[in-house]
Design a protein around this nucleic acid. Structure first.
Lengths: 206, 206
DNA sequence: TAGATTGTTAATCGATTAACAATC
DNA sequence: TAGATTGTTAATCGATTAACAATC
């Protein structure tokens, strides 16, 4: 008897569902259906029901899903029933914008530290944080037990930084540098690169 | 006889291949193989060959791919053999960081204008641009014939802005607002939301 | 009850991988 | 030539959709 393995593509849709549900909750809504959710998100109702059914039975025939309940369940599934500390590496334009970004606290994250190696940036302020010297980064992240990091350094330094983060015990990296990272098994990486996203879409333009 | 339809998931990998090839070219490399490329990117060699074969024959048996040639072919396929003008809507932290970002020009894009509706931001400077009043946005984008836009406004305004961009003739939108957009057929949208990406990864942490 | 919507199964559709002839 | 690597086919694997019994 094997533990069912949830496809990563399904896991990736859960935060989308959660975001839509929280939006509906803010509108004062109480219940929704797979059909309504699907229309909002451009996803088929069948797929939403199938995705959710991987984790349990959250709805009621005839009425649909209680929004607050389902949102709570998704938060548990995604381990968002607690606050995750996050470290930012790189205090340039992107790193500073991330440090100032107000959108993390509602969504389960708390920026804890921001690092840079540039002596002209170390000690300066970014979104209420004092930029720290990346020389002490590995030891400090390890001591704080932080598992999540965002990389916002130039492409040429990103792999070195990733290696340090892995050494520090980081298990999930959101990489803004336009380069693929090689990391050990068990370390998760997601990529954000506006140019890559734009280049994907220009294919369809003429 | 039908024109072969390229899967979107294949199109989405092409910019990744292109980026790796340009990186290799910068290192002074002349040729590569599907195997080497795959190892760099964590993608199987078979998949890379299959993807490329959808568009033509770009390699040589026994030797592999000429890096400069393949990069040029991918640029043509992705319509990157010209510069695309891009408009930014929203001059907050994210919009300003995008306006200052130096990474677009190498990759085929040129920021043309940045808009905001906030009177305290209109007229201010952001990355060498003067923030314009979004009141004139639709007419100005239409007049300039711009097809690409990045949305960096609060979630509550994003759908309204998207509607205006569509009205202005924009066909591809990179959306930084944490909300799903509903757009007509033929308009392409890509999403960047750091919280959503982080929430995807916390599933695997404990 | 009648209507609506879930959870789930089976069918369909699509993407990835393995393997190898062709050939540089 | 011998070795290497492509382009492509067939097989496998995985994801999505359609349909419907169960039931609120």
């Amino acid at each position: 008897m094997s533990v069912k393995e949830i496809p990563d593509i399904v896991v990736g849709r859960l935060p989308i569902y959660l975001r839509a549900l929280q939006h509906m909750a803010q509108e004062g809504r109480q219940v929704t259906s797979s059909q309504e959710l699907g229309e909002r998100l451009g996803i088929s109702a069948a797929q939403i029901r199938k995705d959710l059914s991987q984790f349990g039975e959250f709805g009621k025939q005839g009425t649909g899903y209680n929004i607050e309940f389902l949102a709570g369940q998704l938060q548990q599934i995604l381990h968002l029933d607690r606050v995750w500390d996050v470290v930012i590496v790189g205090a340039g334009d992107i790193g500073s914008a991330l440090a100032r970004y107000q959108g993390f606290s509602h969504r389960g994250f708390r920026i804890k530290m921001i690092y840079d190696s540039d002596p002209t940036k170390i000690g300066s302020q970014a979104g209420g944080f004092t930029v720290k010297d990346s020389g002490g980064m590995v030891a400090e992240i390890k001591a704080a037990g932080i598992k999540l990091a965002m990389i916002a350094v130039p492409a040429a330094s990103a792999q070195v930084v990733a290696n340090q983060l892995v050494e520090a015990g980081v298990q999930a990296i959101l990489n803004y540098a336009p380069v693929n990272l090689v990391v050990p098994n068990g370390v998760h990486v997601q990529y954000i690169d506006p140019s890559t996203h734009l280049q994907h879409m220009t294919y369809y333009l003429d």
